[in-house]
């Protein structure tokens, strides 16, 4: 419950404060969003499975974001940034979809 409140407060803070994203970090924003969504859906599914663990959630969120940003940064340096971004988005997108499917099965038994 308090976790959901934290999420809502975060959204409100982002909308109201509108923090300026530094120019150097802007290319990583979409990737960071996808990585964060992956962690959130994974955590949600774990909650529904009854095996949620705070430490695993935090670590997976942070490592997801860092590794995704690292891959994109590396791709940018090598000149294949858009391709690597696509790869990251595909992998994380597939995970999000199947986690969402598991959540759907839990919630709607369908």
């Amino acid at each position: 419950m308090i976790a959901a409140v934290g999420l809502v407060v975060g959204v409100l803070a982002g909308v109201l404060l509108q923090p300026e994203v530094p120019l150097a970090l802007q290319p990583y924003l979409p990737i960071a969003v996808v990585a964060a969504l992956d962690a959130v859906f994974g955590g949600l599914r774990a909650v529904l499975d009854g095996i949620f663990d705070d430490k695993v959630f935090v670590v997976s969120f942070l490592s997801n974001a860092v590794v995704a940003a690292l891959i994109v940064y590396l791709g940018d340096q090598l000149g294949v940034g858009s391709q690597l971004s696509t790869g990251v988005v595909v992998v994380l997108g597939v995970r999000i979809f199947s986690n969402a499917a598991a959540i759907r099965r839990h919630l709607f038994n369908a």
Partner: peptide, 10 residues
């Protein structure tokens, strides 16, 4: 972490 996620989404 969820706070950060929310801010990121926003």
């Amino acid at each position: 972490a969820l706070l950060v996620v929310g801010a990121l989404l926003a």
